[in-house]
C-alpha cells in the first residue's frame, strides 16, 4: 500500500507544470523514505531529478517499494482538476496498474477522486556524481525567468560568466547582443531577493536558452533558484519544493565544435 497526503496540494500542481513540457513520461519511485524521479528529455540534453521526502508529507505510507510509470501530460491534466487550495492524496495498492488521486477541499465539503492508468516504462538511470562546483549562484527565481525570456529575443544560447563580483548573462544573434549583469547583493535583508555568489574559480559556460526557459516554468515553486556550474560539466538549476525536497534540472553545456 502506498499513500501520500499533501495538505499543500498546489505543490503537486506546480511540480507537474514545471516538468510536463520537458518530459512525456517518467517513473515515480516510491519508497519508505519518499518519492524520487529521474528522467532525461527525449533528446538527452537535459535531466530532471525530483526528491520529495516522506517527512514533508502530512501522511505518508509506503509498505513496499513501488515504481509508477506515469504519462506526465495525463497526470498534469488530472492535477488541473484539483483546486489550488485542495489537499491532494496519491494512492496505489501494491502491484497496481493504476494510481488514485483524491482532491479534498479545505472545508471537506467537496471530495473528488480520479484514477489514472500507469504505463510500463524502461528507463535508463544516470549516476550523477557528487560534485564540488566552481560557482554556485543563488538568485530570485523570477529574475532568472526574466533573464532567460529576455535573452531569448536575441539568440538561442546564453553565455553565463561568473566571477566573485557577480554573474553576467549574454546572448547574441542577428539583431545584436545583450548583456545582463547581476551583482552580488550588498545586504541580505530580504533573503528571497538576494543574489549570492559562492565562487572557487571563475567559469564561463554556454547553454541553450530553449531548455532554460523550460526549467524556468518551475518559478512558482520557489522564490529562489540555485545555479551550480563547473567547466565542462552540466549546469544544475535547483528549485526547493517547500519542506518536501527539491526539483533539479541538469543541462549539458554547449561545447566548442
Amino acid at each position: 500500500m502506498f499513500e501520500a497526503r499533501l495538505v499543500q496540494g498546489s505543490l503537486w500542481k506546480k511540480l507537474l507544470e514545471s516538468i510536463k513540457d520537458l518530459l512525456n513520461e517518467a517513473i515515480f519511485d516510491c519508497s519508505s523514505t519518499g518519492i524520487t524521479l529521474q528522467a532525461m528529455d527525449s533528446s538527452h540534453v537535459s535531466l530532471v531529478s525530483i526528491s520529495m521526502n516522506s517527512d514533508g508529507f502530512d501522511t505518508y505510507r509506503c509498505d513496499r517499494n513501488l515504481s509508477m510509470g506515469i504519462h506526465l501530460p495525463s497526470l498534469s491534466k488530472i492535477m488541473k482538476c484539483a483546486g489550488n487550495d485542495d489537499i491532494i492524496t496519491m494512492k496505489a495498492t501494491d502491484d497496481a496498474d493504476t494510481v488514485s488521486l483524491v482532491f479534498e477541499s479545505q472545508n471537506n465539503e467537496k471530495v473528488s477522486d480520479y484514477e489514472m492508468k500507469l504505463i510500463d516504462l524502461d528507463t535508463e538511470h544516470l549516476g550523477i556524481p557528487e560534485t564540488e562546483y566552481s560557482c554556485v549562484v543563488k538568485m530570485p527565481s523570477s529574475e532568472f525567468q526574466r533573464i532567460c525570456r529576455d535573452l531569448s529575443q536575441l539568440g538561442d544560447s546564453v553565455v553565463i560568466a561568473c566571477t566573485k563580483e557577480g554573474v553576467k548573462f549574454s546572448a547574441s544573434g542577428e539583431l545584436g547582443t545583450g548583456n545582463i549583469k547581476l551583482c552580488q547583493s550588498a545586504s541580505t535583508d530580504k533573503e528571497e531577493e538576494a543574489v549570492v555568489v559562492d565562487m572557487n574559480e571563475a567559469v564561463c559556460l554556454t547553454f541553450a536558452l530553449r531548455y532554460l526557459n523550460f526549467f524556468a516554468k518551475a518559478t512558482p515553486l520557489s522564490a529562489q533558484v540555485q545555479l551550480s556550474m563547473s567547466k565542462d560539466v552540466p549546469l544544475v538549476v535547483e528549485y526547493k519544493i517547500s519542506e518536501l525536497g527539491f526539483l533539479r534540472f541538469y543541462l549539458a553545456p554547449k561545447i566548442e565544435d
Binding site: 532525461m40 538527452h44 535531466l47 535508463e124 538511470h125 550523477i128 544560447s157 549539458a252 561545447i255 566548442e256
Partner: peptide, 14 residues
Amino acid sequence: GTMQGRMDSFFSIV
C-alpha cells in the same frame, strides 16, 4: 561554433 552536449556523455548510465 558550438555543439550541444548530451547528458549521457557526462554521466554514466547505471
